[in-house]
Design a protein around this nucleic acid. Sequence first.
DNA 1: AGGATGATCGTCT
DNA 2: GACGATCATCCTC
Length: 207
Amino acid sequence: MTHRRHPRLGRPLDLAELPIETVALARRLVGVGLGVASPDGIVGGRIVEVEAYLPDDPASHAFRGPTRRNRAMFGPPLHAYVYFIYGNHWCFNITSEPEGVGAAVLIRALEPLAGVEVMALRRGAAPARDLARGPGRLAQALAIGGGDDGAPIGFGGRIALYDTGGPPEIAAGPRVGISAARELPLRFAVAGSRFVSSPLPRPGAMV
DNA sequence: AGGATGATCGTCT
DNA sequence: GACGATCATCCTC
């Protein structure tokens, strides 16, 4: 199964268009199409929520230097970093920054657009809104697991990005589930999307 | 609608 | 041996 123009995800995204600085990449990925090729066809949707994990970020797995688990974070940009958490769940990141610098963007939620029935099958009778809302559910719906860790993003591989059209309005807020650096607004989402895991203030909203 | 809890295991100290 | 970038379920309000 190979990636090409997809009626719902759009046309293949030229990776050269993407910034590799972590915050810039995180913001750019909001609204981008994500497709995973499998025997069941292309399964994916529009990225509606991400989190940035910066170099020298106390909330990042890379904070204490390279280990076997976080190795991909220190590899080249635009590769998958996939890790297992809480004994149950896989989480999917796209690496950022030049090789040697440990950083990545966690993909937290998707608006399902392609292979929705396949996602529903994998997720087991979940409501459409919950098919890929949250990083664990997203990985399960897309069948992303440890075997994808370190793989390059792109056409010719399993995981590819698509250009779905114009950039959306982006909301920002604190990251989820971390204990360090809680105050930093490093979570980015499509403003107002119902597929975001938890609400974020609209851009320019009053505090 | 929202808070608490158990599941479950790889990774690092 | 503790804990985690989570989720589903069960409970109370």
